[in-house]
Amino acid sequence: MVKQPITKLGAPCRAGANAPLSLVSVNCCICDLNDVEPVGVGEDFEYRTSPDTFLAVRCRNCGLIYTNPRPAMQDLSRIYPPDYHAFEFSAERYGFVYQVRQKLEARRLLSCCKGLGKDARIIDVGCGDGFHLNLLKKFGQPSWQLEGVDPSDRAVEAGTRKGLKIHHGIVQDLVEDFVLPQASYDLAFMIATIEHVDDPSAVLTTVRSLLKPGGKVIIVTDNTDTLDFQLFKTRHWGGYHFPRHWNLFNPNTIRALAQKTLMEVDTLTTVVSPVNWVYSIRNTLVDWQAPKWLVERFSLNSTFSLGIFTLFDMLHQWMGRGALIRATLRRPL
């Protein structure tokens, strides 16, 4: 037997992040039940914001995947560090990938805006640095009124620099404080947002109240009904984004959420994305302490791996199991 070095406590973490987070136990956000089975256990492979380990569970009643226990709200600033990518997904930082993503996303966004009038009012909830709003500003109708909401100062600052109208805070507070008018918007976007919020039902109910009767919300979120989830779910699945993605859906649970929040499902499709594939492999390599040059081949900067997995996910999309869900929900008339 070789004498082993004594391992450190908990997961590896960045300098200054040694203190454990405050964790809270929660029930399923759809069923309000605590009837779960464990699915995966992991750590913050990407940002190393704490030494904690996290458990992804599946609700036996509805199939929702959620992190439980999860960080308390007071620790949000710790789990979203200043270098968090969504705060500034800039052309300078992400180069060619930015250009490609911009074109693809612009096409997708505009297809969601079909049929909107000249004076349409559009809101992006959880807009980050305003990437999508900026695309609508660039490629959409100039007369559209565009607004965003994000709780991060840094994201709001980055978006405002681009000349966008971004409200700082969380959507429920902004409605309560009459900053956002109810029944006033034609279209809302929640792109990569619903998985981050503490109470998806409450947020969606609030977004519903912002919409005019017949108005729509487009939800784009990670899909758990995929091959990449099946292959990596026990630990490394990129979609977990431990500990920041608190609720993860599949088409069935999105329908259940729509039902709970009294929304009608207009369309429910999946969308191609290479990100969860790339990050699942990256997380595996990080966890197995692979050399840095290899890990770096799998990131938002790596055109090659993003390209390969875009093609690969197209095959899955063709079978109706793309990496992302895109749900269009309508506020009933």
């Binding site: 406590l9 908990g10 454990p20 256990v41 226990p69």
Partner: peptide, 19 residues
């Protein structure tokens, strides 16, 4: 197990058993 530690929120206080 690390799964039980994560379920009870004590993962940050545990050492990995390597062998």
């Amino acid at each position: 197990t690390n799964r039980l530690a994560a379920a009870t929120g004590i993962g940050a206080h545990c050492r990995t058993v390597k062998y």
